[in-house]
Design a protein around this nucleic acid. Structure first.
Lengths: 115, 115
DNA sequence: CTAGCATATAATGATATGCTTATATACGCA
DNA sequence: TGCGTATATAAGCATATCATTATATGCTAG
């Protein structure tokens, strides 16, 4: 009896299924420490823009991530207000940091900063 | 930096994908507190025996569960020696207990005891 | 307004998944 | 040995998933 809050099994399995894709899982891990826009993900995953967009849509559909348009770009970030965020967080915590991806982006001058 | 051990992202996503099915996730949660044999799962999930058997095989293929034949029956249990067991455990801990399923089995006289 | 870049959506196709039914295997008992 | 029960495997099918290409939309800058 060491957790106060539990996650309904059906809901949990839907979340885990979404996280059960290496691209989406990595996205979530990245987003945990950095906001990213779509084109950054395209550069990181070396995958077509629509593929990235579709993964992000799935994450957004169940509100695991939020999006915010800034000028031309759409930035994604983790939705910490999600009812099951503690569950998600406990999973992401156990994954290795993905700072190299971000560092590589910066090295290539592909990191987007906008204001 | 509060976890010492992290799970490779590829491996983590494979595990999460397997847990991302409500039947398998429930199986794992049940197995966390009770050994079960195949016919018990058939009764619990009201699903065909081959379907149950195939789910168990997937869990066994990546060694999340162990099997042990006892007479006519094959009992499954969680493999606590799995390299990623701490990861799995941290997920299962956050799911509600499934004791009703077991209680129901017992009420119907379907719980298997063999020795 | 138009051109160009960022992103989203639609349509399509290959492969994976999860069930079903039919059949094979393994064990226990008479 | 042969039968009944428990389980595993094989084959087939419907649907889901994840990519692709083509196209639409939205914003910015000139």
């Amino acid at each position: 009896m060491n957790t106060l809050v539990t996650v309904d099994l059906q809901r949990a399995s839907r979340l885990l299924k979404l996280l059960g894709d290496p691209t989406r899982l990595t996205m979530m891990k990245l987003l945990k420490s950095h906001e990213c826009c779509v084109c950054e993900f395209v550069a990181i995953f070396k995958m077509s823009q629509p593929a990235i967009s579709q993964h992000l849509r799935k994450l957004r559909d169940i509100e695991l991530v939020k999006e915010e348009r800034r000028g031309q770009w759409v930035f994604f970030s983790i939705n910490e207000d999600h009812e099951d965020y503690p569950f998600i967080q406990s999973i992401l915590e156990q994954l290795p940091e993905q700072n190299e991806s971000i560092a590589e982006l910066e090295a290539q001058g592909l990191r987007i900063c906008c204001e």
